[in-house]
Amino acid sequence: MVSALLALLLAAAPPDRPALTVAGDRVLVALPPSILKQKEVRARLDSALTTTFIVKTKDSNARIEIRYDLWDEVYRVKRVDAEGRVAQQQIANAAQLEAWWRTPVEIARLAGDRAALDLELVVLPFSAADESDARQWLSKSGGTRDPSIDSKSVIDALIGTTLSARPIVSYRWSLEARR
């Protein structure tokens, strides 16, 4: 069922850029649905386990969680904006999921008339209770490898090729918010 729903999403292409809007002094970001079509993201959503999306700026984070419930055949979704406001609901199908995904989420506050924002989206498997949990996941993903990246001993090659080439998926954009 999940495969069928996700198959409706088109073949993966590089994700579009997020759209920023400003409401008062609040900066809202709408993530492009093409994120959900990326190969790694599709595989995670297909797992029926939670996929966590961390939306990061320099000063704040928002979080989105999506899990497909195999028995109830609904998506269980949750959104936590930069102010810590939580919204969670059930979504019946992939089309409604895409519509919900487009809903802007607050990511920052705007001090002047415009601001440049470096936005990063990190996709994590499993649920992430909070940002420190996500950071811990990121930092642990390197295992116990000798961290001397430029060292070229046989041990580095031996251990280096026992690590996943890419433990996570992340995207980064430079955007501008205007009133």
């Binding site: 297909d46 797992s47 029926a48 386990l49 195999l70 499993f126 642990k140 090729t161 026992t162 996943s164």
Partner: peptide
């Protein structure tokens, strides 16, 4: 489940491991 996934990923003969649920 995440901890279990991490433990498996740390096995030296495992390049990557992915969990998924089925009915």
């Amino acid at each position: 489940l995440r901890d279990a996934n991490n433990r498996i990923k740390r096995l030296p003969f495992v390049l990557d491991a992915a969990f998924r649920l089925e009915r």
